[in-house]
Simulated assay, not measured.
Amino acid sequence: MASTPRRTVVITGGTSGLGYHCAIKIARQKPSYDIILASRTDPNSAAESINKLLGQKNVSFLRLDLSNLVLVRSFVAEFEAGAHPPIEALILNAGSQFPDDVQYTKDGFESTFAINHLGHALLFSLLLPSLSDTARIVVTSSGTHDPAQKSGLPDAHYTTAEDLAHPTPESARNPGRQRYTTSKLANVLWTYALHRRLQQLNADKGRFWTVAAFDPGLMPGTGLLREAGAFTRFIWHRVLPKALPILRFLFSPNTHTPEESGAALSWLATGDDCKGTSGLYYEGKKAINSSNESYVEKKQEDLWSWTVKTIASDPSEQRRFEVVDI
């Protein structure tokens, strides 16, 4: 019997919440894989705790700050120096929400859009040479991107990538939670734009790369609202996790613990059942339609072209980041 090839799984935001529980599931099922938890911090020694829990040594932590494009490049350099096996699953999961006034990163981009989309797009582009021939990319979005789901958050609205990255005086007055829902819409737009390019690349190069977007549902108690006020954080961390049955009944059946959604995310990233599927949007383990706006190809292409132009440092990088010159 042939031995299982060594592969790598990279999970952004893997040290807590959804990403942490996804990492446990994959590490348990794939003990021969290198599992990389890529997060800004690891205050609770997540990688060490998973290794101890499973009696294994295949999980490690690498610092990744998605809000700083220079540090994203530093992460990739450190990853490549580690001589890891090819990446079988790249799980672009980390996310932030800034509910109050608009904030900007060191690079001058609006922080929600920068962390939830732009940093991830650069990470993917830089890691292209490290992907296995059967690599799967999973992007954690959110049902809040779809106004039809009536999440209670302001409706997402995509104008242009430039406006999201550098808000005008008028758009800077938009609610912070709308910037979040729109960044989650951007995740789906980018997924569909990437899918088209992967289809062509796979046909030209004989690869089998796939991409999917994922909605984990409402998960009270995660670190998503770490930038919110003290009272909101108290409700989110202390009250709502104890009221899941009520939330499922009154708000949405798509309400889960991080463990439940982490299991669904691990299935989507590494499960045999969905292997080969691409360009789909999943609510948990079920493929569903995303928002009407997410299917507007003009908006997908605006986001894609602006992103590549912004993150590429020279013409050769731009050709590679377009996923044509691989």
Rank of each mutant, 00 (worst) to 15 (best):
L198Q: 08
S141R: 05
Q199R: 06
G143K: 04
S151N: 09
S142Y: 12
H157L: 07
S151F: 02
H195L: 01
Q178G: 01
R207I: 00
T181R: 03
L198P: 14
P169F: 01
R173Q: 15
L201Q: 14
L164M: 14
H195P: 05
T182F: 06
D204P: 03
F208T: 06
V188Y: 12
K205P: 00
S142A: 09
V188M: 06
D204C: 05
A156M: 11
G206K: 06
I137S: 08
G152W: 07
A212Y: 01
R136L: 00
R179C: 01
L185C: 10
P169N: 02
D163N: 15
A212I: 03
P147Y: 05
R173P: 02
H166F: 13
K150F: 10
H195T: 06
I137F: 11
Y192V: 00
R177C: 00
A135H: 09
A148W: 02
W190Q: 09
S141N: 10
R173G: 08
S171A: 01
W190S: 07
T144R: 02
D204M: 06
D204L: 10
N202D: 11
R177Y: 05
S142R: 04
D146W: 03
K205G: 00
W190H: 15
R136G: 04
G143N: 09
G143Q: 08
A212S: 15
S151A: 05
E170I: 01
R177I: 00
H145F: 04
G143M: 13
Y192D: 04
F208N: 14
D163Y: 02
T191C: 14
T210L: 03
Y180E: 13
P154N: 01
I137P: 11
L194C: 07
H157T: 03
R207E: 07
P147Q: 03
L201V: 00
T159G: 04
T160D: 12
Y180Q: 11
R136K: 15
A148N: 14
